[in-house]
Structures are given as C-alpha cells and as structure tokens.
Design a protein around this nucleic acid. Structure first.
Lengths: 195, 195
DNA sequence: CTTTTAAATGAACAAATGTTCAGTTAAAAG
DNA sequence: CTTTTAACTGAACATTTGTTCATTTAAAAG
C-alpha cells in the first residue's frame, strides 16, 4: 500500500517535526530511531526521507527553528525606557517563552553534543546572540548606575541559568501561575543586580 | 591472547569507570557502545562484563557515586553560625564541588532520562535530599528575618540552577579563578535573598 | 474518464548494537 | 616446577540501526 486514505500533502511534514521533537525530548536524539519517529507519525521509515535528507537535519532544523523563534520573539518585546524596565522585560519574556516550549528548550540544550561541528557552530552562534541581549542590558544598567556587577558576562550567564531552571520544575497546572513565577524570579533578579 | 602483560587485577575496574564517565559525558549514554568503552580501556567488549552486569549499571553506578560523594562532602562542610554563614558555605561549596567534577555533573544531569524507572527514583531521591539542604537554610534565614523569600522551594531551585550554571562556562585555566567566581556568585545570591 | 505525479510502501543493505560463553593465557598459590 | 584461577579473548547471537530504491497507490489535473 501507499498513499493511504486520509494522507494529505501538507500534513506529514509538521507531524514528523512534532514526533521527532517529542521523542528527542523524551529519550534523546541517539536513542530515537527513524523507525520510531515514523511509527509515531503512522508511516514507514522510508517515507521520512521525502522530508529530510537525514536524521541529523531533523535535529538541526528543530534547534535552529527554536533559536530563530526565540530571537524573533524577543525582538518583538517592547524594551521599556530604563535598563531596569528592560531587565524586567527580559526576565519575564525568558520565563514565559521557555516555559511554553519545554521540549524545544530541552532538546536545544541537551543535544548540542550530537551536532556535527558545523551545525554546532551555527546553533552556538545563535545562542550567543541571545545571551548578548541580556549582557547589553546589564552593561547599560551599570553605565547608568542602576546595576552593580563587576563581571557583566558572568552576571548574564548566572541570570540566564537561573531563569532557564524554571523549566525543571514548573508545571502549567501547578500551584503557582506563570505570573506568580515571573514575579518571584523578577524580584530575585532585580535584587541580585541592584545598586 | 588473554591476560596481556601489565594487566593487574585492581586496575581495570576504575579504568572502565573513568572511560565510561568520559565517553558518556562527551557523547551521551545512548551514543556510546560497550565496544567503545572497552577500546578506551584497551580491552575487548566481553571483558567489561567481569565488572558490570550490564551497560545500565555502569551509568547508575556513576550517578549514584556522584550523588553520594556530593552529600558526603556537604556533610563535612562546617555550616557556620548564622543562616547567612550557612548560605555562603553552601554557595561556595556547590560551585567548588561541581566545577571540579564537570563530567560527573554533566552525566548526572543529562542522563536521567536513560535510567530505568527504579534507578531514576533512587537518583532523584538523592537529588531531592541535596536540594532540601539548601531549602532548610533558606527557611531558617526567613525564620530569623535574615532572608526574604515568599516561596523557599522556588528560591532554592533558582539558586541551585544559577550555581550549577557555572559549569557551562567556567574553565580552570580561564581569566577568573575559582575564588573569584565564588565571590561573584555569593554576592548575587546574598543580595537575591537579602531582607 | 484518463493521465500525471506526489506520497508512501516494503524489502533490502551493510554496519553496529548489548550480551553470552567456551576457550586461552598469565599471574598467584602450593 | 606444577596446579589453580582470575582476567581476558574472540567468535557468535539475534536485533536494531540509518539509508536507498524500485514499486505501488491514490489524489490532482486535464
């Protein structure tokens, strides 16, 4: 059999993406076979190669898409007037964006070592771009005297690590709302860099 | 051939552990075969089974050993008089301990999903034990009025995430010494929970 | 209805996987 | 020197791996 009833052209590609993302996040890139992805989509393994040249490209596309989405979304956020406003905007944006995409975040963070060198360089570059957004805010706050930080780069890394950590415990249906969490973390970030 | 010249009884076991740790950290548990571990030790794959019942046990032993070492080492740290002293002790200990064992930390954090459920429960329990050490300190600081934190558990998670993040960028031969880093992070932690 | 074509099958490939085990070797014990 | 035994080899096993491709099917175009 081929072209089974109900197969439409536009549907399969996103379903492959979604299945790959889900499985990579749950079990890890190396532990997931093309056959398992295909089974999740309801298709034979060979069919995947109509949509991706190989397994690695599946991973790269997911990670690159995530990093591009992240940078684009941050670009759409109003930065506010002062460095303090900008830092609050970044804090709240980072938590909200990442908590809404746990699988993408997990894969993009955990599977870096499974990227071939050239692909790694691309993703790592996008990550650095994002980190520099925060570093810039912190440097501006230091310049205006709003923040105290002797090592802005270190401070950026510390803040990002803290914020990304939300994903390890936060659940949408938990006791605390996303607004609660944003407020809690913003208070800690604010105090940590306060003059 | 077997029992090649220079093979001593006590040597192979730790070398297998070291090779497995190194390779798991570099490439991930699922991507590392028993043959690759054996090759790193200079032995055939079959020989590994004189020392481990299976591949999973190799991973569990590494992770369990790491968590036990962590809890034991923290137990040996003088806690100080006040909650503030205890928090500083924890902050400095966490950074120092983790930065000295990057491979163990990486594996223990990244390979949780490759543990069979019962093994996962054990490791997760040990992790919770450690996290509760910090939570207790924070609760005591709140009780004495030294700290302000409306959600002690969240604060603990935030602080630990921030501290563990050091491992993503810190290098022993970098510009900043371990003491520098400890001081930088301690200032941020102190301010973040300050009353 | 007929033709075209995109989408999927299913079998095949060599290579690699975790694990077992009978046999071999060299160190330790007597 | 002889015996014992722990340590290791090397081949074998059934599965699974990523990927290719000739073939088949059903939807779209005319």
């Amino acid at each position: 059999m081929a072209r089974t009833i109900g197969s439409h052209s536009g549907t399969t590609r996103p379903r492959i993406r979604a299945a790959a993302l889900r499985l990579f996040a749950r079990h890890g890139y190396a532990a997931v076979s093309m056959r398992k992805i295909a089974a999740e989509v309801g298709v034979q393994a060979g069919a995947l190669y109509n949509y991706t040249p190989d397994k690695q490209s599946l991973l790269v596309d997911l990670m690159q898409g995530h990093m591009r989405d992240l940078l684009a979304a941050w670009n759409d956020v109003p930065q506010g007037e002062t460095p303090l406003d900008a830092l609050e905007a970044f804090t709240r944006f980072h938590i909200r964006f990442h908590s809404g995409r746990p699988d993408e975040v997990f894969v993009s963070y955990m599977e870096l070592r499974n990227l071939e060198p050239e692909n790694f360089a691309v993703i790592e570059g996008l990550r650095r771009d994002y980190e520099e957004q925060l570093e810039t805010i912190i440097r501006q706050g230091i310049a205006t005297g709003d923040f105290v930080a002797t090592e802005p780069k270190v401070t950026s890394m510390a803040v990002i690590a803290m914020l990304t950590g939300v994903n390890t415990w936060f659940r949408q249906d938990g006791r605390l709302s996303l607004d609660d969490v944003e407020a809690l973390y913003w208070e800690m970030v604010r105090k940590a860099v306060a003059a």
